[in-house]
């Protein structure tokens, strides 16, 4: 659908900052509560797509012991999401998928974790399923097997989670990534500048802006602003590098042409907010992830902690490999 104005994207998936904070809080607290009451947060998705929740812990002492398992904080979850969103970009790049596949997959991933905590569904699995779903929707069909093979992951995990992901997205599957908007704005800028001799510069402007969009997609901005504004924010950043046009004047011209509901200052404020989200964006490294990932492993499977108490630390290695055998996350996702 080309009409963003009447889309489910606009109607249901653009939030206020407070709404986002609240959503992240709710799912984080739900997972923490589950950890306390049931000793584990893991919701198992089986081959038929059904979910199993941890069973209530009848043995009070066990629960007592396990209540020492540290849950992930909201900030941990945030970092972990960004980490796996980066992974989505890496995987899509490795497969040579078009940019929109990557954009759609990341937006799916973000929407999914508005409903769930990373403690409930491991982001590694969800990341793969989001890429898979994005390929299906964008008519770039890749079989789950192919996808799994390419990154040495069990493709059954992708298929098991597919229905869960589609449902969590409310089947609102048409999303508007900002890449297309950039194309449109750059064409428009070409007219605006009457820049026949600047085609090279416009190309640079566009390419840098697309790289900026890649980074913007890692922030909360896609859940807060429409794709057009994300694209403009990226172009403004890009223009700071290339100095192709007077951007304020260009924004003014857009406003005047569109008889939009926004005033120029409102638009600039939005772009500034997107900019500040970009500045605040922390790109977690694998090392940053280690302590969070350890916490997550214990949340998902507290028996690891029980084992730890029993076993010597020297056995850590073999335990880790056995956990991997069961499809549990490893601390350094590929």
């Amino acid at each position: 659908m080309a009409d963003f104005q009447t889309s489910t994207h606009r109607a249901k998936w653009i939030f206020t900052p407070n709404e986002l904070v609240e959503k992240y809080k709710v799912s984080n607290q739900r997972a923490i509560k589950m950890l306390k009451e049931y000793g584990s947060t893991r919701i198992e998705v089986s081959a038929d797509g059904s979910l199993s929740y941890p069973e209530p812990q009848l043995d009070a002492t066990k629960v007592e012991k396990r209540s020492h398992t540290k849950p992930l904080s909201i900030e941990d979850e945030q970092l972990m999401r960004v980490f796996y969103e980066q992974k989505i970009q890496e995987v899509c790049l490795a497969f040579g998928f078009p940019q929109k596949i990557q954009g759609t997959a990341i937006i799916y991933f973000k929407r999914f974790y508005l409903q769930w905590s990373v403690m409930e569904h491991h982001p590694k699995n969800i990341m793969l399923t989001c890429i898979y779903a994005s390929c299906k929707i964008e008519e770039n069909h890749v079989s789950a097997e192919e996808l799994g093979k390419g990154i040495q992951q069990d493709h059954q995990v992708i298929l098991n989670n597919e229905m869960l992901v589609l449902q969590s997205l409310g089947f609102d599957l048409i999303v508007y990534a900002p890449y297309r908007s950039i194309e449109g704005f750059v064409d428009d800028i070409e007219d605006f500048c009457q820049a026949n001799d600047q085609l090279e510069m416009l190309k640079d402007l566009k390419e840098t802006a697309k790289l900026e969009v890649d980074r913007i997609l890692l922030t909360d901005a896609p859940l807060l602003f429409p794709p057009g504004q994300l694209a403009l924010a990226a172009l403004r950043r890009s223009n700071e590098v290339h100095g192709v046009l007077d951007f304020e004047r260009y924004l003014g011209s857009i406003i005047s042409r569109q008889q939009s509901m926004h005033t120029s200052s409102e638009l600039i404020e939005s772009l500034n907010l997107i900019y500040s989200l970009l500045v605040k964006l922390k790109m977690p490294s694998s090392d940053d992830m280690k302590p969070i990932d350890r916490k997550l492993r214990y949340c998902l499977d507290p028996s690891l902690q029980d084992d730890k108490k029993r076993e010597k630390r020297s056995k850590h290695k073999s335990k880790k490999s056995s956990s991997e055998k069961h499809g549990l996350p490893s601390s350094t996702p590929s």
């Binding site: 584990s40 059904s50 409310g170 089947f171």
Partner: peptide, 27 residues
């Protein structure tokens, strides 16, 4: 998997699109 149990029950559940309004407020 420690502490896990399959839930018995019907194989189906519905996802009501009509109640989508609820999604914005936290499905």
């Amino acid at each position: 998997m420690a502490g896990m149990q399959r839930m018995p029950g019907p194989g189906m559940s519905a996802y009501n699109l009509a109640s989508q309004a609820a999604m914005g407020g936290g499905m």
